[in-house]
């Protein structure tokens, strides 16, 4: 179905943002169908009301009104007509919904992990990234889960949304035929930085995608270990809770933290050495720095040894 009410089937309009996925057109068609039918009925209803308001305004106290109690034909008409129209809306909505829930065969599978307050995307080759990069014109299936609370993966331009639930997997698929960069938002309230839990989805050519994938695992040639750790730091969303400039976010800032003594809740202070940093990443609940919430998810199983080493080196380098 094309949408005749849009000049260009994909540009942003007054009501809807840019449409960049294959099922966005169907969605927009139904949206505008409901919009125009609703507008029509609204105008008719308000028109009748305004007419009565003027025509039958009170001219004289106690003037006779009318003894009308109903009109069976009219009442049947205005019960049946809405029922039929609503039936059409239901059927169209149902069809579109099933489309968004049923991924085709041969999808590109990417795993999504949501946590307070960052997205992490795991590609088929095991690489992690904090943004989603997908090849153009290829169906992509996201298998999503959360490590802490509810989140919701939302790409307005794709008209795609699905809650991400801890303890379960949810699935969302899409295909974009339009190169570009689109916003990813979290739409299920998840705490302090809910509104900052954003990311991007980049739709790129197949070649660019392949190159990106290659760059995700381990360190690049000619890159220092600390630089590599810096990239991993961002890709794993560490920067959403830990600053590197001394400012206090959800977790402690990592500026100059290496080698210093850290106060621990319910235990003796510890020196922030390599062993402590590793433990803090893999099993954060073991030692909580005093004055901060126990909010960090465990990264055990999500970071490989090379990245871990690079991260330690990076943290050591932040002075």
């Amino acid at each position: 179905m094309k949408t005749p009410l849009l000049a260009d089937g994909s540009a942003a309009t007054f009501w809807l943002p840019e449409a960049a996925s294959t099922f966005a057109a169907d969605h927009d068609y139904l949206y505008y169908l409901i919009f125009w039918i609703s507008t029509f009925f609204f105008v008719v209803m308000m028109g009748a009301m305004a007419y009565f308001m003027v025509k039958y305004r009170r001219r004289k106290q106690g003037e006779a009104t009318s003894d009308i109690h109903g009109n069976t034909k009219l009442e049947i008409a205005w019960s049946v007509l809405p029922t039929l129209i609503l039936g059409v809306f239901f059927v169209l909505g149902f069809r579109g919904f099933i489309d968004t829930l049923t991924p085709p065969a041969n999808t590109l599978n990417i795993n999504v992990t949501a946590q307070q307050w960052a997205w992490s995307f795991t590609y088929p080759n095991g690489g992690n990234d904090s943004i989603l990069v997908v090849p153009v014109g290829k169906p992509v299936k996201l298998t999503m889960s959360s490590v802490d609370v509810l989140h919701s993966f939302f790409v307005p331009a794709f008209r795609a949304k699905r809650d991400v639930v801890p303890g379960r997997y949810t699935v969302l698929w899409f295909q974009s035929d339009k190169l570009g960069e689109y916003d990813v938002l979290c739409t299920e309230y998840c705490g302090t930085s809910h509104s900052l839990m954003m990311s991007k989805v980049k739709v790129v050519s197949q070649e660019e995608y392949d190159a990106h994938l290659k760059g995700l695992t381990g360190c690049q040639d000619g890159q220092s270990l600390a630089e590599c750790g810096g990239v991993a730091f961002k890709r794993n969303g560490c920067n959403s809770c830990h600053s590197v400039d001394g400012s206090k976010l959800v977790g402690p800032s990592l500026k100059g933290v290496y080698g210093t003594e850290q106060p621990i809740v319910g235990g003796p202070a510890v020196i922030a050495d390599e062993q402590y940093i590793r433990e803090s990443v893999m099993n954060p609940m073991a030692k909580i720095v005093a004055g901060y919430p126990a909010a960090m998810p465990a990264y055990a199983g999500r970071i490989n040894e090379e990245q871990m080493g690079a991260l330690v080196e990076y943290i050591r380098s932040i002075k």
Partner: peptide, 24 residues
Amino acid sequence: FLFSIGGLTGLFLGSLSVDVHLTD
């Protein structure tokens, strides 16, 4: 006036596929 708008916009939210985009 206001309730009519409230009711009619409910139709957008009741339609499965449109609700996916609009909910939350």
